[in-house]
């Protein structure tokens, strides 16, 4: 599937997750955050950068790992990305939805 973001066709799956990380940039991240109704602060960006780094290292993401990251604790993670934090944060970061149950 394709979706037009910032005037460009971006590859996404049926849930709206980007399927080609090389198409991601900060502006697209901002746009995806707007769709999720999340105004991005510098704290949000620190978390997004962290999960992108983990993705590049092919480390599977989970709430527990995020909590141990030293970047953000679980409570703050939930307050930065309310409702479904890992799902929302990965969507904005342009990476696949984590398949973890923990």
């Amino acid at each position: 599937m394709e979706k037009i973001i910032m005037g460009k066709p971006i590859e996404v799956n049926e849930e709206g997750y980007m399927t080609n990380f090389s198409q991601w940039n900060k502006e697209i991240g901002e746009e995806l955050a707007k769709e999720a109704h999340i105004p991005l602060s510098s704290r949000h960006w620190q978390v997004i950068n962290y999960i992108q780094d983990e993705y590049k290292k092919e480390v599977p993401l989970s709430i527990r790992k995020i909590g141990k990251s030293g970047v953000v604790d679980i409570k703050e993670f939930y307050s930065l990305f309310p409702n479904a934090p890992l799902k929302t944060a990965t969507k904005i970061a342009g990476i696949p939805k984590p398949a973890s149950c923990i």
């Binding site: 709430i63 909590g67 679980i74 923990i102």
Partner: peptide, 18 residues
């Protein structure tokens, strides 16, 4: 191995998750 926390840590995660 599958990143399952022990019970006390899991309780903390649950609490922090609301």
């Amino acid at each position: 191995k599958i990143d399952m926390p022990e019970i006390p840590e899991f309780l903390d995660i649950l609490k922090c998750s609301g």
